[in-house]
Structures are given as C-alpha cells and as structure tokens.
Amino acid sequence: MDAIFLQILNGLDKGSAYALIALGLTLIFGTLGVVNFAHGALFMIGAFCAVTLQRILTLSTEIIDETKTDFLGNPLKVKTPYVETWFGPEVGQSIIDWSVPLALIIAVPVMLFVGVAMERGLVKHFYKRPHADQILVTFGLAIVLQEIIKYYFGANPIQTPAPEALVGSFDFGVLLGMDPNVVIYPIWRLVYFIFAIVIICAVFGFLQFTTFGMVVRAGMADRETVGLLGIDIDKRFTAMFGIAAIVAGLAGVMYGPILAPNYHMGMDFLVLSFVVVVVGGMGSLPGAVAAGFLLGILQSFASMNQIKAFVPGIDQIIIYLIAIVVLLTRPRGLLGRKGVMEE
C-alpha cells in the first residue's frame, strides 16, 4: 500500500511537467492548428530565466580581505553580491536563496515576449502551409534557440537550487497515519505539483470564466464564424500562443531545482510531451492534462523494482508502448474530439 502511494507521489512531479508542456502544446494546436516542435525550447528558455536571474543576483564586488588568508597564505578575496550591499547581508542572502521562485516574475514578461514574437514573426506565415512544413520550421527554430542558449550558457547543466526552506523532505506517511519514514517526499516536488495544479486551474479558469476565454473557445470551435461576427480572432489566438509560452516557461523555471537546466532539456521533454498530447487526444485540453499525469504515474510505477524484476527495463519504454496501444485502439486519443486532425 505505502509503496503504491509512494510511486503515485513520485509520478506526480514528472507528470506535472508533462501536463504543463502538453497543455501549452494543445493550446497552440487547438487555437492555431500548428504543431509546435519548438515548445520544448520554450520550456528550456523558462529554465534559463531562472539561471539568468540567479547570475544577475549573484553579481558581486570583490574585496581583498587582508585579515583572512587562503591555504597558500595569500590574502583572501571576499565576494559580496551587490544585493547584499544594497539590502543588507540577511535580506540579500534570502533574495539570492529565493531566486528560483523570484524568476517566475521575470519569466512571465520574457516568455510572453518570446511567444508573441515567435507567433507574429514566424509561425503566422505557416498557417496555410502543410503540417510537415510547420513541424520542420519549428524544429529548425528549436535547434536555433537551443544553440543560442548553448553559446551563452555552455553545454553543462547549471544548478539552480531551491530555496533553503523548501529543501529536504516531507514525511507523508505520518500525515496519513502510517509509520514514520515510510513515505518520504521532497518538499520541492510537492511545491512543483501544487504549482502545476494552480497553473492548470488558472488556464482553465481563464478559458471558462472570462469573456476573452469564451471568445477563444468559440474560435477553437469555429474560427470562421467568430471572425464573421466581427471579432479579431487572430489577435486573441496570438495572445493564447503567448499564454502557452508562459505556461511552458513557468514549468521550466520551477523544474530547475529538480533537474539542473541544460540546453537540450527542452527536446528531451518535448518528445515525451508529444506522446502525451497524442495519448490525451489532439486538441483536448483536459485530455492533455490527464494523460500527462497518467503517463507520469505509470512511468514511476514501471520503475518499481518488483515490476522491473518481472519485465526488465519496462520503465524505459512504457510511455511509448502505451502511446502505440492507445493510438491503435483509440485513434483519437483518450479524450480527443471528433474531427480534429482526422484525415
């Protein structure tokens, strides 16, 4: 029982990331009908927003302190970040400590800009062209973005630690009346899961309860009619592209403490996210979210030792196996709508 519970928890954080990326992908696909291979790159750019902020915050002045010496007897250089000189050492330290959550604030405008620029500058010109062309051009864009990041930040992963207060683990078992130290879960992963739920709820709420969202939903259902009613649907769809970019970016920012950002993390996640979208049903938002969590959890179940002893290595391929089975038995995906991407 506790083992099962633990695996469900373990699957949640990966599932959250899949769900968030897949949600963005589906938003773009559902509104603009574009298959965005550069969506993983947006996730990666988000993660590098956190890296950049961390670098900016730790910009320091160097003072040679004559009173202290290093092990060779030379005077020691003491680095003091600017934020510490400005806000005092304690506040400064905690600002640096909380750089990942703070990065969420800068990531929103950055991702909005990147997303809108991408849609207006490139993707817009591909609406009328075949899906293969859309895949190819966004694939090219993903390579370019990835290489730019690699040029500035190098090829090695860069650590972005979580705030001190959120490091460590949380004993879930005690909460549910089990023995202590049976079901332990890192706090940050819990934070990530809650964060993902909040974002998902926000996106759904936005679409469901605002006029803007209503128009967008109408546009997803029948773009032409909405246009005939005198509504500039293109502008709203551009905004949705921006929102999808923000969702992917924020998912990336928060994922930094779980997996140190490197330049190809986007692509690694993208391949899986596509599978998630297809399993959930192309164009179905609840499908994408449900499939994201489902596959994340199944993957963590498959990595249990008992199951691996039975079928070795199943954890590596389970997602693809499920995708193949789902696509062949339910071609529309789990919650796919009729008439979307059917030939």
Partner: peptide, 13 residues
Amino acid sequence: RRSGIYFSILTLA
C-alpha cells in the same frame, strides 16, 4: 494506420 502528424509521432515513438 495513421497519417499526418500522428504518423510522425508514432514513428518517433
């Protein structure tokens, strides 16, 4: 058995 984007993703998978 599928075409278009589904085919691409199936082969990728």
